[in-house]
Design a protein around this nucleic acid. Structure first.
Length: 535
RNA sequence: GUCCAUGUAGCUCAGCUGGAUAGAGUGUUACCCUCCGAAGGUAAAGGUCAUGAGUUCGAAUCUCAUCAUGGACACCA
């Protein structure tokens, strides 16, 4: 409908000899201002040097279109369109025919997108911050896939380096402790409950027969166990990755020295104080960073450069990394390295999400993997449920600093808007159990009232919302939308009786609410929420 | 100190590339079930959009300054 109007306006503008301006069509907040509205007359004041009202009437004079019922001009210069409602009726048929595909599109045009998210180090278990990143990343992937992008969801496993050494040492230390021996816990060691649990498992299975195993054994065992746990929880959280990339494998696949050599050849390194530095201040960063330490070991930056090179080599049109804001200093470094290796840094987009602050008993709980103090994703899922958790963590934009009050989440979980939406779904399902129709009629003659239009307009808006969410990469637009849709339905339900004595009326109303239910389902699916038939 | 983000109703948050009288939920106060699910609906109250200037037909939205909050500024990852 928007396109039809834009075309009509453009035709009119041509007659006025104006063609190089883009016409914008909005949906006004108020019903009095019509179904659609444009500010084009006001934008043209600068070019035409005329009163916007005058311009508006010139434009309107030249518009004629069968779909338009009425056009009004309102001060200071808005042109408001009132359109015929046939398209809303047509749309019911579309929803009922396309079913689970309603709202999908091909605007992505098969472009290859890589979305990397969570990628938590396997040195502990997932916490609430990962819950947010996971909900965002996976929802974005679903939305983009639904919009015709070729999406790869990826998890990068940091299974090498210092932290893994510390992890191995930590496990060994705990195991020794249980065996009645001592082995020092490293200063940077991990204190999580899960490490102690693993040590207990080892003892239960092997008693003290592992005491002379070397550190490699503990490293490998701990990494494998923790990773399995992480993946299992993510799966429960309805996230299924397409690709897991291991840092260990990247280190084997790429000769890291080779990458440093290329950087050197391109003139982006220098030596100082016995270390080799990356001259990223010449590119996007403010300061330089070390690649090779004085003791000749590599910093974490080097394998990460290799990892991103690997992503580039796999031929994605766009790569999206989702980091916590605590890694924001890292963005410039990474982009610099990409440029320094001769790739296009604009293909990599790094999204920073504000960390979730945990509140318990009115106090901020400091989360830390090292001290083992945190609320895990698993606990969140068990306490508030998967639907509520996914909805909650996706409903705010990434830039919002979020507080997660665990007491509130537990005690008043009904306040979560997800229940309001699911309730609408369950209500419709329950009516459909009583009466249902499958065949779709040509006309819906009895649905010619404002109440029906109000709901149908929301249903009609869905494909546009999805496109918007996909292009702007904002999954929370979906939660906003689906709430509005549920609200429109609850309103309709309270005013209109669906099942009546009149067979035709009942049938058309049933099909209307069926299209609502389908749209709710499709929308919720994009954010990983599965509505129940009964609540 | 420098960099990034944020500041909208008592609280939690929307507000799309600047548009018409700033919106929801929650909380407070009233109503509404003989009938498809009241986890619902209706209404009232609640705002110097942090502050100050600027840009223009028009600013919560853009620019600058100030204040406040969170985070980052390692030869850790």
């Amino acid at each position: 409908m928007k396109e039809i109007l834009i075309e009509a306006i453009n035709d009119s503008l041509k007659k006025l000899d104006i063609d190089d301006i883009s016409v914008e069509i909005d949906v006004p907040k108020q019903k009095d201002f019509g179904d659609y509205s444009t500010n084009i007359a006001m934008k043209l004041t600068k070019i035409l040097h005329k009163n916007p009202l005058e311009i508006a009437s010139l434009i309107v004079e030249n518009i004629s279109n069968a779909n338009i019922e009425k056009i009004e001009i309102k001060a200071p210069g808005f042109i408001n369109f009132f359109v015929k409602k046939d398209y809303l009726i047509e749309n019911i048929k579309k929803v009922l025919t396309e079913k689970d595909q309603y709202g999908s599109s091909n605007i992505g045009n098969g472009k290859k997108i890589n979305i990397e998210f969570v990628s938590a180090n396997p040195t502990g278990i997932l916490h609430t911050g990962n819950a947010r990143g996971g909900a965002y990343g996976d929802s974005l992937a679903r939305i983009m896939r639904f919009s015709g992008f070729d999406v790869t969801e990826e998890y990068y496993i940091n299974d090498a380096g210092n932290q893994i050494n510390n992890l191995g040492e930590s496990l060994k230390s705990r195991y020794y402790e249980i065996c009645g021996k001592t082995y020092p816990l490293p200063e940077e060691g991990y204190h999580g409950k899960e490490i102690i649990a693993m040590a207990n498992d080892l003892y239960a299975k092997y008693l003290d027969s592992l005491l002379d195993k070397d550190i490699e054994f503990y490293k490998e065992y701990a990494t494998k166990e923790l990773l399995a746990k992480i993946i299992a929880v993510l799966k429960e959280y309805r996230i299924n990755y397409d690709v897991y990339t291991s840092e260990k494998e990247i280190r084997n696949k790429y000769n890291l020295q080779n990458i440093i050599d290329i950087l050197t050849k391109n003139g982006y390194t220098y030596e100082r104080d016995g270390a080799l530095w990356f001259k990223c201040s010449a590119l996007f960063d403010e300061v330089d960073h070390v690649l090779v330490k004085e003791d000749k070991t590599l910093t974490y930056l080097v394998p990460d450069i290799a990892y991103h090179l690997d992503k580039y080599n796999r031929g994605f049109d766009k790569m999206i990394d989702i980091f916590g804001t605590d890694h924001h200093g890292y963005v410039a470094r990474l982009k610099s390295s990409i440029k320094a290796l001769g790739n296009d840094p604009d293909k990599l987009e790094i999204k920073l999400l504000q960390l979730v602050r945990l509140i318990e008993n009115g106090e901020v709980v400091r989360m830390s993997k090292r001290t083992g103090k945190s609320v895990t994703l698993k606990e969140v899922i068990d306490e508030v449920g998967i639907n509520a958790a996914r909805y909650y963590f996706v409903k705010s934009s990434l830039d919002t600093q979020m507080d997660f009050d665990l007491n509130l989440a537990k005690s008043k979980s009904n306040e979560n808007p997800v229940y309001y939406v699911c309730y609408a779904y369950a209500r419709i399902s329950s009516i459909l159990k009583e009466k249902d129709y499958d065949e779709i009629p040509q006309n819906f003659d009895t649905l010619n009232d404002e109440d029906s239009y109000n709901v149908l307009e929301k249903v009609y808006a869905f494909p546009d919302v999805v496109k918007n969410a996909a292009l702007k990469e904002l999954p929370h637009l979906i939660t906003n939308y689906v709430y509005d849709l549920a609200n429109a339905f609850h309103n309709y339900y309270s005013r209109i009786r669906i099942i009546t004595d009149d067979e035709l009326v009942t049938k058309e109303r049933i099909l209307l609410i069926k299209s609502v239910r389908q749209t709710i389902k499709n929308a919720l699916d994009l954010i990983g929420v599965i509505p129940p038939e009964k609540m």
